[in-house]
Amino acid sequence: MDLPLVVGVDGSEPGMRAVDWATDEAALRGLPLRLVYASLWERYEGAALAEGLGRSSEQIMADTVVEAASKRAHRRDVDVRISTEVVPDDAVGTLLREGLNATALVLGSRGRGGIAERLLGSVSLTVAARAHCPVIVLRGGHDNQGGAGRHRRVVLGVGDPAHGSAAARFAFREAAERGVALEAVRAWRWSAHEPAGHPLTAGEAARLHEQGAMEVLDKALSGAVAEYPAVEVCRRTVEGTARTVLLDASTAADLLVVGVRRHDSHGHTGMQLGRVAHAALHHAACPVAVVPQRV
Rank of each mutant, 00 (worst) to 15 (best):
M1P: 13
V6R: 04
G11T: 00
S12I: 01
S12T: 04
E13T: 06
P14E: 10
M16H: 06
R17Y: 09
V19Y: 12
V19I: 05
D20M: 06
W21M: 07
A27L: 09
L28S: 01
G30F: 05
L33G: 13
V36L: 10
L40K: 07
R43K: 04
A47F: 13
A48K: 14
E51T: 13
G52L: 15
L53P: 08
G54Y: 12
R55Q: 14
Q59G: 14
I60G: 11
T64V: 06
T64G: 13
V66T: 13
A69C: 05
S70Q: 12
H74Q: 15
H74N: 06
D77A: 01
V78E: 10
V80Y: 11
S83D: 12
T84L: 06
A91M: 02
V92Q: 03
G93E: 05
T94R: 00
E98V: 01
E98Q: 11
L107A: 00
I115C: 02
E117D: 04
L120K: 10
V127A: 01
A128N: 00
A129F: 01
A131K: 00
I136D: 01
G141H: 04
D143S: 03
Q145G: 15
G146W: 11
R153F: 00
V155A: 03
L156Y: 00
G157R: 06
D160W: 12
D160Q: 11
P161I: 15
A162H: 14
A162N: 09
A167I: 10
A168S: 10
R169C: 14
R169A: 14
A175R: 02
A176K: 01
V180K: 04
E183W: 01
W188G: 07
R189P: 15
W190H: 15
P199I: 09
L200A: 02
A202Y: 05
A206W: 08
L208V: 11
L208F: 15
Q211L: 06
M214S: 14
M214I: 15
E215C: 10
E215M: 15
K219E: 15
A220S: 12
L221G: 03
A224M: 05
A224Y: 14
V225S: 08
Y228I: 08
Y228P: 03
A230D: 09
V231R: 11
V231M: 10
V233N: 07
V233M: 11
A242M: 08
R243W: 06
L246K: 01
L246Q: 12
L247R: 01
L247T: 08
L247E: 01
L247C: 08
L247F: 05
A252E: 08
L256D: 02
G259H: 01
G259F: 11
R262A: 02
D264G: 06
D264A: 11
G267R: 03
Q272C: 01
L273E: 08
L273V: 06
L273W: 07
H278C: 09
A284G: 02
A285M: 10
C286I: 05
C286S: 00
A289T: 02
Q293M: 08
R294V: 14
